[in-house]
Design a protein around this nucleic acid. Structure first.
Lengths: 208, 208
DNA sequence: AACTTTTTTGCAGTCACTGCAAGTTTGCAG
DNA sequence: CTGCAAACTTGCAGTGACTGCAAAAAAGTT
């Protein structure tokens, strides 16, 4: 019995993982990240504490819902773009696609996460720290796309810029959600694209 | 007895802090970061474990030697530049000045840190996560310098880029120390300055 | 020397996280 | 359905980072 789709096992695993992620986010938003113990999260998700750590390497990871497939998926996206597209554009589009897809799948979770991140912005940074290896793979994809050696600065820097753009965007989004997260990320990446040497002008809001 | 310079107390505090930092780096380089306990570090520095935590909020911080005065100092540097210098340049110069000064003061420590960071690159990222508030202050200085509101994206992004540049530079430095750390940071910041939209060309090394 | 302020320390406790050795569930035959 | 192996879950015992608190020890002041 191995339907190409999913076995019972796989389905259960997915559900458990989702339940743990959801429980972590929900409880953290409710009473604050460090007033929630892993024990409580596990209880909420109806599994043992030990099982929690079978799914996530840390409480941090569970809050962000680090998707182990996200890295490879992004790499695929980047490499799938035709050669006429610059590496920067390919990367930009891939980041955007990933974000909008993620937001479509779990917008409610991200709204709750926002609450948590507003009070603990450092959690986002820490979450990215854990995915350092994943970033490495991404950087290699960019390097390949740009016909640069993997040791070159550019790919790593581009990926790091992406993280930074995402982090800044989320932080701003958390403070003022009148803008779409995707637009904020786009804005940040555009700044990186055109270069930070140009100081943007400040337009006083006056006209209607 | 309060010489303008330093009281006995201040001197002792500096020495203890330095001893703890040094012990953390030395032992971590010797046997690996997570094979060293805070207890051992404290013993090496001849203080109690509790005192360790009076000086550093975490083991991570002690390894990097997070200097609480670094943030304000950088802000000062940035604001001290004449108005004819662009914010980007002011920031770039400040980062560079800070790094070279730090390296002059404690080059040996950084050589040891390099060993540790080679095996655990995530520690650098995590260290930056803790200084999120410090980054905020820096961003505000940049905002002031650029005549932008503190809510603007640019300052935050510039500071984030600085962190990223530093991190990438250190990582590369750790793998190949034939280059000066300062030069690597400069290279990275230059890329950010001119914009990531331009893909750099790969020059095959062939001619002498 | 008496007194105040700072710094150090020990202690008890919480909690994230880990390895290990059962248990339990699922998948797959026979 | 029965037996078997692989995958998953669980409990348990242990390590180690980190915290609050209150007492001891300096250091600075009069």
């Amino acid at each position: 019995m191995n339907q190409p789709g999913e076995s019972l096992r796989d389905r259960k695993k997915r559900r458990t993982r989702a339940a743990l992620e959801r429980a972590t986010v929900r409880l953290s938003a409710e009473r604050g990240y460090d007033h929630v113990t892993v024990e409580e999260i596990a209880a909420e998700a109806d599994v043992s504490v030990r099982t929690f750590f079978n799914y996530f390497a840390s409480k941090d990871e569970a809050l962000i819902g680090a998707d182990p497939e996200a890295g490879p998926r992004m790499a695929e996206r980047i490499l799938a773009f035709p050669g006429t597209v610059t590496p920067f554009e390919a990367y930009r589009q891939s980041v955007l696609a990933e974000i909008t897809e993620e937001l479509d799948n779990a917008r409610d979770l991200w709204l709750l996460r926002k609450e948590v991140l507003m009070q603990r912005p450092d959690l986002l940074v820490r979450a990215f720290a854990n995915s350092a290896e994943s970033e490495q793979a991404l950087a290699n994809a960019v390097a390949h796309r740009a016909a640069l050696p993997e040791s070159h600065l550019y790919p790593r820097l581009l990926v790091a810029a992406g993280s930074a753009a995402f982090r800044c965007a989320v932080t701003r989004w958390a403070h003022d959600d009148s803008l779409a997260l995707g637009d904020l990320v786009t804005e940040a990446l555009d700044l990186f694209g055109t270069g930070l040497a140009h100081t943007p002008q400040h337009h006083h809001e006056g006209g209607s």
